[in-house]
């Protein structure tokens, strides 16, 4: 092979990231540079709320996960970050806009997930259940066996969408090796 430099190994985010990575959300004195409001105008008609919980192998909600969203449809490049330790139900909650379809792909949002108990972060995606036609023909979704595909598809609500992430079990979320 070529002379590649060896990748720096990953380590867990651990249980105590909040005052470093999401300090404002958790009420520490250091100011966050990013939060869960990914759009400037939270009251704009196109603003949606995406929420959900992260579950462990015993079906319990995880209260020390860090969820990051990244979406890029060419027009809007949006990044958000939220820890699951401040909502009373341990949910993640983001305000964003739904990305557009690019080149006929189904619209989606990238999810990067960190938590105590993960030595290496995981990647998943959020697709949308009101895009049935595009979802059906999407190249990436079609890599996933049909009975697991719904783990990636958020359900429409009155204010946006909800999606839960299951680390293990029958409903285990599809994770990607990017």
């Amino acid at each position: 092979m070529d002379n590649r430099n060896l990748q720096t190994p990953s380590q867990t985010i651990g249980p105590f990231f909040a005052y470093g990575l999401t300090p404002t959300q958790y009420d520490y004195e250091f100011e966050s540079w990013v939060d869960n409001n990914m759009v400037a105008d939270l009251d704009a008609p196109e603003t949606i709320e995406i929420s959900g919980s992260v579950f462990d192998g015993e079906g319990k909600t995880i209260n020390d996960a860090l969820v990051e969203l990244w979406q890029d449809d060419g027009e809007h490049k949006l990044y958000g970050r939220f820890g699951t330790g401040t909502d009373e139900k341990n949910r993640f909650i983001f305000k964003t806009i739904k990305p557009k379809s690019v080149d006929g792909q189904a619209p989606f949002i990238n999810v990067i997930l960190f938590m105590r108990g993960q030595l290496l972060h995981t990647y998943t995606r959020i697709y949308f259940d009101d895009e049935a036609n595009l979802n059906q023909s999407d190249k990436i979704l079609n890599l996933v066996e049909s009975e697991r595909r719904n783990t990636l598809i958020a359900k429409k609500t009155e204010v946006g969408y909800t999606i839960n992430i299951h680390m293990q079990g029958q409903k285990e979320t599809v994770f990607f090796d990017l």
Binding site: G117, K139, Q168, F175
Partner: peptide, 14 residues
């Protein structure tokens, strides 16, 4: 802590 939090199914590789 990895026991209940590590994915158990193969990852999808696009």
């Amino acid at each position: 802590s990895t026991l209940l939090r590590a994915p158990t199914k193969p990852l999808i590789m696009p």
